[in-house]
Nucleic acid binder design. Structure first.
Lengths: 192, 192
DNA sequence: ACTGTAGCGGAGGTGATCCTCCGCTTCAAC
DNA sequence: GTTGAAGCGGAGGATCACCTCCGCTACAGT
């Protein structure tokens, strides 16, 4: 029911350098990039990312020839984590499982942004990530639909975009974001 | 019930130059800016805006000393238009009036963006615009609440941010955006 | 028609970011 | 320990957007 093997993680892993120092730099770059993309969106400065990671700009470009490579790698990491979460919540009641997963979705900033800004992108990695995510989360949604908890006249894609839009919006505080998200999810829940 | 006088439009109008050619340029700049901000967000290139308007970059800077001035002017225009719409829908049934207004909201791209990205801005014009908009739309929402059509445990601010987030998200087609928006609005409607 | 001035445009200086290139460093295999 | 190659960093050229400045243009009031 939950997730299947994720080719995505393999693609990314295969690019990680073998030498110790190089691998460390690679990881530092990914972490710095996640931070920077989360703060400034997909246009974050690459020099800034290299600085945060404590490596030279040349090292960044050796590992990630283009901005897109870097962004996709961070994105793929978050998607993998989200897919794993889907397995964790699978044991809960249908509606509970779905909302737990969606609330975790809120934590994955880059993924959220990618869905809002670049989801219509057709590159190989984006497609693979989308598939993984839909394979992981889609069943949670369908289960809620079958249980009569979620309305039948919408798709999982509708739901993801709705949540992505709301959570990517600037709120003065997290409590308000949660409140608004909960209200929107009430619209998803079947009237009872 | 509906809108009050809008000081905002006066502020903006007072800046419009008197000479014919200058006024034409001013209008062309605003139109070009609206387009560019809608397409590329608040970071749109100013040189590009001048080019679209068919004027020199110097003319842009004479009319709008900073990017912020320009953005605020476009924003103020859209807010004014939205306030006028609020008067138009006032005659409809409470829930109908509210959703009509919100659906018009979707058309005002820059306003939408401003709410999503810059609503926490405290500058004078942004505050004035926010007030105007809340004075225009807020009563529609309260009327729906009083009529028992909209839930009482949320604020107008919650509602605006929710709609702004969803409508500013990238959708493959408008039909899907409408569908998702309608679902979220179902969450706003009181269970009956 | 004349004329003073508001307004015009865009060349060019400034600063930020992108990305390449290559001499130096460090790892790890032997 | 030696050594070859993988990896490193950051200087610097290219590009682009920002914004100022000033000689020229054309409007509007008389």
């Amino acid at each position: 029911m939950a997730a299947q093997p994720f080719p995505v993680s393999e693609i990314v892993a295969s690019r990680r350098p073998h030498r110790r120092d190089a691998a460390r730099n690679y990881d530092a770059l990914l972490a710095a990039a996640r931070e920077a993309f989360a703060e400034n969106g997909a246009e974050a400065s690459l020099e800034d990312i290299a600085r945060r990671a404590g490596v030279g700009i040349g090292t960044l470009y050796r590992n990630f020839p283009t901005r897109r490579h870097l962004f996709e790698s961070v994105y793929a990491d978050e998607v993998n984590a989200l897919c794993r979460v889907a397995e964790d919540v699978a044991a809960q009641e249908p509606w509970q499982a779905l909302t737990s997963w969606l609330r975790r979705f809120v934590d994955y900033t880059v993924t959220k942004r990618a869905i809002r800004e670049a989801l219509n992108d057709e590159s190989e990695i984006f497609l693979a990530c989308r598939d993984s995510m839909y394979q992981a989360g889609g069943p949670l949604f369908e289960r809620a639909q079958v249980a009569g908890e979620a309305r039948g006249d919408m798709t999982f894609d509708d739901l993801l975009r709705m949540v992505a839009g709301i959570t990517a919006t600037n709120f003065p505080d997290d409590a308000q974001r949660d409140r608004v998200l909960a209200i929107a999810l009430d619209g998803v829940r079947t009237a009872r």
